[in-house]
C-alpha cells in the first residue's frame, strides 16, 4: 500500500544556515510516526514543510503517492488543508483570543464544506464531543479554558477539515503530566475511530512510545535512525539515540501498555 505521506530527502536552508539537512520517512495510512530529536534538530522546520508553510530547498513530499507542489492558489491550499493538519505546542497563542470556540470551529467548516448553518452547528457539537468539550466551553472564549482544554480545541479545529494526516508538534509538551495523559488517550482514541494518521513530534520519549509505532530520530537536521518505535527506544543503534535515551529519567519505562496501539509495540 502506498504510504499516505512520504518525505524524500527533504532539506531546508535559511541563508547559509542548514535547518534540515536530509530527512526521509514514510507514514503508513492509519499509522503513527514519531519524530524525536533535541532542540534545534529541525523537527519543526520539517513539520512546516509538510504543511506547506516552508518550501523545501531540496527533496519532495508525496501525499498519497502524488508529489505536493507549492500551493499558490487558495483552492490548492484548501485541498492541502484537507490532507494535512497541524496542532501547535503552545495552547495559549494558537487560538484567537477574541473568538468563541464554536465560531473557531465553525470558521473551518465554512471554509471547507458547503454546509448549511444548522449542519455546521451539528458538526461543531460532534467535534466538541469527539474531544470532550461541553456546550458551555463552546460558547466561551479561549481565556476561559485551561491549557488542556485549549489543546482539545486545537485538536478539534485540526480535525474539522477531516484531514488524513495530523501533525502534532510538541502538542502535549506544555501540559501537566496528568492532562498530557488525557490528551494522549484522546489522540489514541480518535485514531482508532477515524483511521487518521499521526506524525508526533516530541523530545519526550515516553510520549512517543505511547502513541507511535514507527519513529525517526533526528540529529542536526538529519535522520540518524528509523524503525519501529519500541525497537529504537529499547535497542538504539545510533550513539546519539542512546544518549537521548539516557538523558530521560527512568529509561526502559513503558507507560500505559494498554494504550500503546498494537502492531509493532
Amino acid at each position: 500500500m502506498t504510504p499516505i505521506l512520504e518525505a524524500q530527502g527533504l532539506r531546508k536552508t535559511f541563508g547559509g544556515n542548514v535547518a534540515v539537512a536530509d530527512v526521509s520517512f514514510a507514514l503508513a495510512r492509519g499509522g503513527s510516526l514519531g519524530i524525536v530529536g533535541e532542540s534545534g534538530s529541525g523537527k519543526t522546520t520539517t513539520a512546516r514543510m509538510l504543511v506547506g508553510l516552508e518550501v523545501p530547498t531540496q527533496g519532495r513530499i508525496l501525499f498519497d503517492g502524488e508529489p505536493l507542489e507549492r500551493a499558490r492558489s487558495t483552492a490548492r491550499r484548501r485541498e492541502r488543508a484537507r490532507g494535512i493538519q497541524m496542532v501547535f505546542q503552545d495552547p495559549y497563542s494558537s487560538l484567537d483570543r477574541r473568538q468563541t470556540i464554536a465560531s473557531c470551529l465553525d470558521e473551518v467548516l465554512r471554509v471547507h464544506f458547503p454546509m448549511s448553518a444548522e449542519q455546521r452547528a451539528a458538526r461543531v457539537s460532534e467535534l466538541a464531543d469527539l474531544v470532550g468539550l461541553d456546550d458551555r466551553m463552546l460558547r466561551g472564549r479561549p481565556g476561559a479554558l485551561s491549557g488542556g482544554q485549549r489543546q482539545r480545541v486545537a485538536i478539534a479545529r485540526a480535525l474539522a477539515a477531516e484531514p488524513e494526516v495530523l501533525i502534532l508538534d510538541e502538542a502535549v509538551a506544555a501540559l501537566d503530566v496528568s492532562i498530557q495523559a488525557q490528551v494522549l488517550n484522546l489522540l489514541a482514541d480518535i485514531r482508532e475511530r477515524t483511521s487518521i494518521s499521526y506524525i508526533l513530534i516530541s523530545h519526550d520519549l515516553a510520549v512517543v512510545r505511547q502513541i507511535t509505532e514507527e519513529a525517526v530520530v533526528m540529529y542536526q537536521g538529519a535522520v540518524v535512525e528509523s524503525g519501529p518505535t519500541a525497537k529504537i527506544l529499547d535497542e538504539p543503534q545510533h550513539e546519539y539515540t542512546r544518549r537521548l535515551r539516557a538523558s530521560v529519567p527512568g529509561p526502559g519505562w513503558v507507560p500505559g501498555k494498554a494504550l500503546a496501539s498494537g502492531g509493532a509495540a
Binding site: 484548501r78 488543508a81 493538519q85 497541524m86 477539515a161
Partner: peptide, 22 residues
C-alpha cells in the same frame, strides 16, 4: 507571527479573511 494566524493559514483561510476577521 502568532500560531493562531499560522493555524488559520494552514486551514486554507484566505489572507484577506484572516486580516479582516482576525
Amino acid at each position: 507571527a502568532q500560531p493562531y494566524i499560522t493555524a488559520l493559514t494552514i486551514q486554507g483561510v484566505g489572507g484577506f479573511a484572516i486580516c479582516r476577521r482576525h
